[in-house]
Design a protein around this nucleic acid. Structure first.
Lengths: 195, 195
DNA sequence: ACCTGAACACCGTTCAAGT
DNA sequence: ACCTGAACACCGTTCAAGT
């Protein structure tokens, strides 16, 4: 009886997030409840509230953990930066599929905005105008989010032809980047001289 | 006291869906519960189960109602068919924003697949190969779904610059259709003669 | 066939009491 | 400061009993 859960390590936000993540990955987002997490940790539900404001804060924490895994985009060209970022976001979120409904439902701005800034920053570092960088990030973000919704549904339905899903995703990504070529190659107006 | 709710018209799937829809539109998807719907109709929760298998079936019914409003796409060219269908789906779902989380979470295949077939059918009627029609529908569907996720989040957050959201959406749609031009203009292989 | 109350197994969270 | 039991106001659904 090595792993008795009762009052071993003290409760902490980290341990609570660990337990929550394990539950969601094993049993799906709908299995996540304060009481269930507490049971997993050998306490009562109310003990969690010393480390986490409420259930939503716990969900935000879960989302942040996943989104923090997205790598900063690399690539020689803007086109390549966009392609690698888009694939990286999709891959990361696909590897955490059961958490996806939580990520998509949790208040934006926080973590999802953060990963957008990864691409936006990389594009602006190539001299792209801020507005163009924001537009491109927004459009690619929408395409990724929609793809994940469909792919999540497909896998929940059990009909997962991963190759076919990959092919469709790449087809759309190609089309998008092709269609955005004009924006991708546009140089910013030189800053107007004051006088 | 004209509108007493008690035992007026008999319960029916239709009346239950009406009540459910009203609740979601007024108070959001999270306010939907069997007990709440029943209360609205002046009965106990269990009476609903004579007309609706369970809560999920009720949600599917709600999703189908909204998706049934999507118009069959019209347009002289394939490009135009795609553009009007995409805008029509977005417009319809945006007009029912509070129901969107339900539509996106409910098992696919049923109603969402149906509206995809509207565009797929229209494209194939122009002589497009089935596989191309499916690809285009899939990519546009992903883009719409992702856009609605972001726009729903923005409106939940209160920062809704509708014009800016429209502009971003159109920008992505343009890019997508531009990038899909090769597929859109491709004619199907002539059916190989048997001998 | 349709309705429905009681009951079961759950929720998130507040509050007051403990250490 | 951290923990926690009891309690409140909810859930979806089953089951047995009614008409």
């Amino acid at each position: 009886m090595a792993t008795s859960r009762r009052s071993s390590t003290p409760l902490s936000r980290e341990r609570i997030l660990d337990a929550a993540q394990a539950i969601v990955l094993a049993e799906g987002a709908s299995a996540l409840s304060m009481r269930r997490v507490a049971a997993e940790l050998g306490t009562g539900a109310m003990s969690l509230y010393n480390h986490v404001r409420d259930k939503e804060a716990l969900q935000v924490g879960l989302a942040e953990r996943v989104l923090a895994q997205v790598e900063v985009p690399v690539g020689a060209s803007r086109h390549e930066l966009c392609a690698t970022w888009t694939r990286s976001v999709r891959r990361t979120l696909l590897a955490n599929q059961p958490i996806l409904p939580i990520i998509l439902s949790v208040p934006r701005r926080s973590a999802l905005g953060e990963i957008g800034r990864l691409l936006g920053g990389a594009l602006m570092a190539t001299g792209m105008a801020e507005r163009d960088a924001r537009d491109i990030t927004a459009v690619l973000g929408r395409y990724i989010a929609g793809s994940l919704v469909f792919e999540g549904a497909a896998s929940r339905r059990g009909d997962v032809d991963a190759d076919e899903l990959d092919r469709t995703f790449e087809l759309g990504l190609d089309a998008l980047l092709g269609g955005l070529e004009a924006v991708l190659t546009r140089e910013p107006e030189p800053a107007p001289t004051e006088a």
